[in-house]
């Protein structure tokens, strides 16, 4: 294969093991990117990193070489921010980019990517792909659960049948993890890269503040607003639809995953796992974005009939503000 084709490959799929080998061959030593004639690459890498944090990426570019190098430099810049959330957003965006490219990829190429990611995939004559169903179950759990349930696919002789789009989506899930690991595994970041990292951190300050504000993972049930507490206490007697909806969206928003939420509902004496799972997934699947499910506002909750305000409910319009308020107070104490 020609070197230009190899570079083309690496530009598209820099996380692939084949690309990593190539990079070692063609890249300069990191410190050399501070030289005047190469510095523009660092600027481009900064741009890539910064855009990625806004969920933006491109799938058309003119210079393959630059596209490869900016990826690796961007990894370093991201690593220098020292913020797990930033690592994850970057990995997510880059994985989306890979998904867009893979969807249009030739069969043999997507196959090669899939295999390098550890999927043992075979191609059918009709162009469909086959993947071990156990393997499928292991990765599909990270995806929106309802659509990716095994029974929505053809399964035969231990293999799930996938079209190219399905396979690309599964790959991108794994790619996200691979890129995240690549970032985490960088042992240290050179000084001159750190200046870019610091700039990036400053640029995204607002975003970081927001996450911190919305990180409720350390808040226990005793801090929940009264309406949610009321619902939790009444799970056993069965909840109305709005009640269930409020509780599920709230718990999900503060970081409970589907399993955690289902476990909460296990307190019901005649707990029906099938039904609960269905309802929970239905509620969570109703709104698209992973970051912002809408928990009903206080006004809505009042109209549902389970608003029992306490003193912390003053001046707030949304149950999540209750947590923010308590968090703020905690900080001032």
């Amino acid at each position: 294969m020609y070197i230009s084709e190899e570079i083309r490959w690496a530009a598209k799929y820099p996380f692939d093991s084949r690309s990593k080998e190539l990079l070692e061959l063609i890249a300069y030593d990191v410190s050399e990117y501070t030289e005047d004639d190469l510095r523009f690459l660092l600027d481009k890498a900064y741009e890539r990193a910064s855009k990625a944090l806004d969920h933006k990426y491109r799938i058309i570019w003119d210079n393959d070489y630059q596209e490869v190098v900016t990826f690796y430099l961007a990894l370093l810049i991201i690593r220098g921010v020292e913020e797990d959330y930033i690592y994850r957003v970057f990995s997510d965006t880059e994985a989306r980019r890979a998904y867009d490219l893979l969807r249009e990829e030739e069969d043999k190429n997507i196959l090669s990517i899939a295999n390098n990611l550890g999927f043992k995939v075979e191609v059918e004559k009709d162009g469909r792909f086959r993947l071990s169903y156990i393997e499928f179950i292991k990765v599909s759990r990270e995806l929106s659960a309802i659509h990716w349930k095994l029974y929505n696919f053809k399964v035969e002789a231990g293999r799930v049948y996938l079209n190219k789009r399905n396979l690309a989506r599964l790959c991108s899930q794994r790619i996200k993890e691979v890129i995240y690991e690549m970032i985490k595994n960088i042992p240290s970041v050179p000084e001159f890269i750190l200046s870019y990292s610091n700039r990036l951190r400053k640029d995204k300050e607002k975003m970081l503040r927001k996450i911190e504000r919305y990180d409720f993972s350390d808040m226990g049930e005793e801090l929940f607003p009264p309406c949610i507490k009321w619902l939790m206490d009444r799970i056993g007697g069965g909840l109305s639809h709005p009640g269930r909806f409020t509780l599920v969206t709230f718990l999900h928003r503060i970081g409970y995953n589907t399993e955690d939420i289902i476990n909460v509902f296990r307190r019901v004496p005649d707990f029906n796992e099938r039904l609960t799972r269905y309802q929970v997934e239905h509620i969570l699947g109703m709104k698209g974005s992973r970051i912002e499910y809408s928990v009903p506002s206080c006004k809505k909750i009042k109209s549902y009939g389970f608003c029992f305000p306490d003193e912390n409910c003053r001046y707030i319009r949304h149950p999540l503000q209750y947590l923010i308020k308590l968090k703020k107070r905690e900080r001032h104490d």
Binding site: I146, K149, V155, R274, R277, E281
Partner: peptide, 28 residues
């Protein structure tokens, strides 16, 4: 447990929504 749940659901069709079927040869 999660993986076993998928296997269980594949047998019982719990929570199925026919509109999400991706393949006409899917068992349900």
């Amino acid at each position: 447990s999660y993986a076993r749940m998928e296997i269980k659901d594949y047998l019982t069709y719990d929570g199925i929504d026919i509109r999400n079927i991706k393949d006409v040869d899917a068992r349900p």
